[in-house]
Computed example of a mutant assay.
Amino acid sequence: MERKKKILIIVIILNLIIVISQIVFGIYAHSLALITDAVHNFQDVISLIIAFVAAVYMAKKPTDTMTFGYLRSEAMAGFINSAFLVGAIVLIIITSIERLFFPQEIDSVYVIVVGFIAFVVNALSAYFLGLHKHSDDHKHEDLNIKAAYLHLLSDAGISLGVVIGGIVIYLYKVYWVDPLISILFSLYIFKETLPVLKKTYMILMESVPKDINLTEIEEIILKNCDGIKEIHDLHVWSLSSKDIYLSAHIVLESTVTVEEFDKIVMKLHKLLNEKGINHITIQPETNKFKCPNVF
């Protein structure tokens, strides 16, 4: 966690330097392209700050009022970052299409130099976050870090497009190349962002995780645990990319003792843990005192 926060702080500082440089040189060179890229980079600074705040809150322990802790802050930050990125990409594509028909003349030398610096810093920032993204358990991605990573990858691609466009403009005075490259990169990032947006939305809506099949889970419980007659009110949901919860009511045979029920619960923990479910709450019942389904 400390390593994650240090990486985010470094990346935030680097991107703030990019934003300030692009605004200053964009105004000096009368380059709308650099100023537009600075606005996009500034949005990434905001998203990185959100990611940092989420990383801090993810480490906080549960309290009397926040009994689950702040685990869902990861999904909330990932959803906000991805949603803003989708909106930014749409605006960039619209602006790029307009510039295909109405190209603007810019000072290509400043665009090439500053754009290249922005590309290098964004690429390095994305690389650092990418290393952290893959250093954790491969089965569980930190959606918060992945969303920030995609933001930086987006900026690197767009900055590279600005550089290439600046070179072509400098050599051939062909101004429509810059928006064309931006459109191509934007479409790629848009495709990569939508799955993150969908996954974080489903976590916030407490849907069943993608890799979990409720019918299969019910069969595992009934077939592998003697003494269980029926299972109902079964719920499986995620609080974060690493925390999957299950709650269920199980109807026991009338002969099952408390000690035997403890053994059943221990066995369920082992079986369900193999499916990625690491938090389990089981309510035992008998036919006589079976609670009705809540949902």
Rank of each mutant, 00 (worst) to 15 (best):
M1C: 08
E2V: 09
E2L: 14
K4T: 14
K4W: 01
L8F: 01
I9H: 07
I13Y: 08
L16N: 06
I17G: 05
Q22H: 09
G26N: 09
Y28D: 12
H30M: 11
H30A: 15
L32R: 12
L32H: 11
A33K: 09
L34V: 08
T36F: 10
V39Y: 14
N41I: 04
D44M: 03
I46Q: 05
S47R: 04
L48S: 09
I49R: 09
F52K: 10
V53L: 09
A54N: 08
A55E: 06
A55N: 07
V56S: 11
M58S: 11
K60Q: 07
D64Q: 14
T65Y: 10
F68R: 09
Y70I: 04
R72M: 11
E74T: 01
A75I: 06
G78H: 04
L85H: 05
A88M: 14
A88Y: 06
V90I: 15
E98I: 04
F101Y: 12
Q104T: 05
E105D: 13
E105M: 11
I112N: 06
I117Q: 10
A118Y: 04
A123N: 10
F128D: 08
H132S: 15
H134K: 15
S135I: 13
D136T: 14
H138I: 10
H140Y: 14
L143P: 05
I145F: 04
A147I: 04
A148S: 07
L152S: 05
S154A: 11
G157C: 00
L160Y: 01
G161Y: 01
V163Q: 00
V163A: 03
Y172D: 03
K173Y: 07
W176H: 01
V177T: 00
L180W: 01
I181D: 00
S182K: 11
I183H: 00
L184D: 07
I189G: 02
T193I: 02
L194A: 06
P195A: 01
V196L: 11
L197Q: 08
T200Q: 09
M205N: 07
S207F: 11
D211K: 14
I212G: 04
E216F: 08
E218Q: 13
L222Y: 03
K223P: 03
K229S: 06
K229R: 14
I231L: 01
I231R: 10
I231A: 03
D233S: 11
V236T: 06
W237Q: 06
S238G: 05
S240E: 03
K242A: 13
K242G: 06
D243I: 11
I244R: 13
L246Y: 04
S247K: 03
A248N: 04
E253G: 12
T255Q: 14
V256Y: 00
V258I: 12
E259Q: 08
E259R: 12
E260H: 06
I264F: 05
M266V: 10
K267A: 10
H269T: 08
K270H: 14
L272H: 02
L272M: 00
E274A: 07
I277M: 08
I277T: 02
N278W: 00
N278F: 05
Q283I: 06
Q283P: 05
P284S: 01
E285Q: 09
F289H: 14
K290M: 13
P292V: 15
V294A: 14
V294L: 15
